[in-house]
């Protein structure tokens, strides 16, 4: 350090330099702007549009690829020879599930209590009926962060807003001290702090929700700790430890990278699914039903599709 007079001057210059870096920002070869690696306050800069690029939302745990998001027994009676079931059959290869090595750390297991393990399997067996994602419900923390939709972080000095394309959901991370809200919410009450270059976010006050399409879940007693650590300017490691004595025998951790959307014109566009799911949720109570076959409030799906197999290149 160079003394009492120059130190603040240097600091001012440094801040000014950062400010200039932020406002003028550099360019990549393709001409788009590059965000500064640090904020004016000297912390890692998480501002921007981000998205998970993995299969965590299908199943946090390691899983094989399968023919359909919903399958049924095939003509052969083997479990590994199941075929797509009616709800996704017409989607062909777009209706299947990609494989993953899983994002659960350690032995890859989620330490459910025996009762909770039963419920998790039951959830999986009734995925279409029960997954809140399909109903466009607020996805909850942490699932919102690895849904296959972009989200945007607006990082200020005292707070961060995280705005999600899915369902217009949002969460606030308080770096300052605020009173705890009087009721639980899907996204919970999040308090953040810096641990070196890692943003550590402590969330309680959750309602409990699903963690993926495989039926993994937690309850309103969950305590979720997220750690956001920069890997490069355009990638961060996102690590989540969940403690919930109601369903888990011990805390467990998932970890995955999240990636910055690098398009020059990247911006958050709405996925307004509240409107999109009206048929799914209310279709049986229409006066004139659009789906031909309802039995009570269950959709009975008759699939009509036109399959033409032609040699490649033939019109």
């Amino acid at each position: 350090m160079t003394g009492g007079i120059t130190r603040p001057v240097l600091a001012a210059i440094a801040i000014a330099a950062v400010a200039v870096a932020i406002s003028t920002i550099g360019t990549r070869t393709s001409g788009e702007t590059v965000p500064s690696a640090r904020t004016a306050g000297g912390h890692p800069n998480f501002n921007g549009v981000w998205q998970a690029l993995n299969e965590a939302n299908w199943n946090l745990q390691a899983h094989e690829a399968r023919a359909g998001a919903v399958t049924q027994p095939g003509v052969y009676p083997y479990e590994y020879a199941r075929v797509p079931a009616a709800p996704v059959l017409a989607l062909g290869a777009a209706g299947g599930v990609p494989a993953s090595l899983g994002v659960v750390k350690g032995d890859g297991q989620i330490p459910y209590t025996p009762e909770a393990a039963t419920k998790r399997q039951d959830n999986a067996d009734h995925w279409i009926d029960r997954d809140p994602e399909l109903k466009c419900y607020v996805p909850g923390t942490p699932r919102a962060m690895y849904l296959p939709y972009p989200f945007q972080i607006v990082q200020s000095t005292n707070k961060l807003h995280v705005d999600f394309a899915f369902a217009n959901a949002a969460r606030t991370i308080h770096l300052d001290s605020v009173d705890e809200p009087p009721a639980n919410t899907a996204m919970g009450f999040s308090r953040g702090r810096w641990d070196g270059d890692t943003l550590v976010v402590d969330t309680t006050g959750l309602q409990g929700s699903w963690l993926d399409r495989a039926g993994n879940f937690y309850t309103e007693t969950a305590h979720v700790v997220e750690r956001f650590t920069p890997v490069t300017g355009d990638a961060m490691q996102y690590e989540v430890t969940i403690e919930d004595p109601a369903v888990f025998t011990r805390p467990w951790t998932m970890s995955m990278p999240l990636y910055r959307r690098l398009e020059a014109n990247a911006q958050l566009l709405d996925y307004p699914c509240v409107e999109f799911v009206e048929e799914f949720l209310y279709g049986d109570a229409r006066k004139q039903q659009l789906v031909k076959h309802w039995e009570g409030d269950s959709i009975v799906i008759d699939i009509t599709r036109r399959m033409r197999v032609r040699p490649v290149g033939e019109r």
Partner: peptide, 19 residues
Amino acid sequence: QIVQSPGAVSILYEGWQRM
């Protein structure tokens, strides 16, 4: 509730958000 960053302003209203 308004929160800012150098490149964006996020506003949470009651039950919805805009970027």
